[in-house]
Design a protein around this nucleic acid. Structure first.
Length: 264
DNA sequence: ATGGTAGATGCTCTA
């Protein structure tokens, strides 16, 4: 199975880029974040024509939105929390029935958290921390097995996940309270397989701001997008690639796709 | 220390 995750930053605007991505990489399953499309306007026919008969999505007007596109059939996950009681379309999940057993796939879009890393001064930062705590509580109460969790988690946890650890220590996405919470969530039962593929002492980014004149030259990136797997699935993990060149496509997202190849 | 860009929306928010 070739699994791909991408914060597409508007599905409707970047349908041509999605078509190019599918044509070049042939993913079996695509997890999208920031689709920015309300469910009644979801481009279902266009997505089916790309070769994905099985589609699950949750979107809203203007912001957020997640979608899972698949060549393989699945069952959508039900009975998940309405995270922070906001109904804000940041998570969906599905279960694939494979020959060796079921595999659960989660697609998350964690709140970005605004600019000020202080929960007293910034409601968005408080929301981000609360979301992480709630996710940690949920996965602690319901330990994951045969599960994959992907998405834009909006946190770069390791020193080499940002262009300058020192300069970003107090910048939302790399602050200690966020990193502690992301690690606590992961420790409910997941392995960071991107860092199995690329050693932790090597730089690894998936996002470069739009606000740089030359993103490649300045290379002020962050690893905000993640692929986690439970230990029982890690033996099936084969390889991972960050499609950095997609940042130079015509009208790019500020995030690039990440691919994982799995032996099932 | 500051401001830089992008998308959806509709006279501004989120990232």
């Amino acid at each position: 199975m070739r699994l791909l995750t991408w914060n597409i930053n508007s599905l409707r605007l970047r349908l041509p880029l999605l078509a190019r991505l599918v044509d070049e990489e042939h993913p079996d399953v695509v997890c999208l974040q920031e689709t920015k499309v309300p469910d009644p306007l979801f481009p279902l026919d266009a997505v089916r024509k790309l070769g994905f008969p099985h589609v699950h999505f949750a979107g809203m007007k203007g912001y957020n939105g997640v979608a899972i596109l698949s060549r393989l059939p699945f069952t959508p996950l039900a009975d998940f929390p309405d995270w922070c009681a906001r109904k804000d379309c940041r998570h969906i999940g599905v279960v694939f029935t494979l020959p060796d057993g079921p595999v659960t796939l989660h697609d998350f879009y964690v709140p970005a958290g605004g600019d000020i890393p202080d929960r007293e001064l910034n409601d968005k930062f408080a929301h981000k921390l609360d979301f992480l705590d709630e996710a940690t509580r949920w996965f602690t109460a319901t330990p994951p097995a045969r599960s994959i969790l992907v998405g834009d988690l909006n946190i770069a946890p390791l020193e080499q996940d940002v262009w300058s650890h020192r300069q970003l220590l107090n910048v939302v996405s790399h602050t200690p309270p966020e990193v502690e919470r992301l690690n606590a969530w992961m420790k409910t039962g997941f392995v960071d397989v991107m860092r199995r593929a690329v050693p932790p002492d090597e730089k690894l980014y998936t996002w470069w701001s739009y606000r740089n004149r030359d993103w490649r030259a300045s290379d002020r990136g962050r690893r905000l997008d993640h692929i986690w797997m439970t230990p029982d699935l890690v033996p099936a993990f084969r390889s991972m690639r960050v499609l950095k060149d997609a940042r130079d496509w015509d009208g790019p997202s500020d995030h690039v796709p990440v691919i994982a190849d799995l032996a099932f």
